[in-house]
């Protein structure tokens, strides 16, 4: 247990819910307010999971996923994205960028953990 998880969302409230849920489930959580901000965590340190929003002012989620996948150390790190869109096209775009899975807002903590359990153990 105790995964290193990076949460990226421009909405503080959502960030906190996700952070709270994941921290309570015993993980080490780091938060970033947008894609650009998140990149600072990808400095070679161990990251087990990334949870990112898609719509953010500075570097959106899809751009972030592409950036992460470019890095040798994080080619295979699972990335989940949060989205209110259950539209197929957005999912496909994110998947093509290299996302592992997604969580549809609104979600309850159990659902978040369920999605997380699909990609890390």
């Amino acid at each position: 247990m105790g995964k290193n998880i990076v949460i990226v969302d421009d909405s503080e409230s959502i960030r906190e819910v996700v952070e709270f849920t994941l921290t309570n489930a015993g993980n080490n959580v780091k938060v970033a307010v947008d894609g650009e901000d998140a990149l600072k965590y990808f400095d070679g340190s161990k990251i087990d999971l990334v949870v990112t929003d898609l719509y953010m002012p500075k570097m959106n989620g899809i751009e972030l996923i592409r950036e992460i996948r470019k890095k040798e150390d994080y080619k295979f790190v699972p990335i989940l994205f949060l989205s209110t869109e259950s539209q197929q096209e957005k999912k496909i775009e994110a998947k093509e960028a290299g996302a592992t899975g997604w969580i549809v807002k609104p979600f309850v903590p159990e659902k978040l953990l369920a999605a997380m359990n699909k990609v890390i153990r």
Binding site: P78, G98, K118, V119, I120, R121
Partner: peptide, 14 residues
């Protein structure tokens, strides 16, 4: 499949 960060073993676990 690994390039998306997926671990298929988790699918089987699930």
């Amino acid at each position: 499949i690994f390039k998306n960060g997926t671990n298929p073993l988790y699918l089987i676990d699930e």
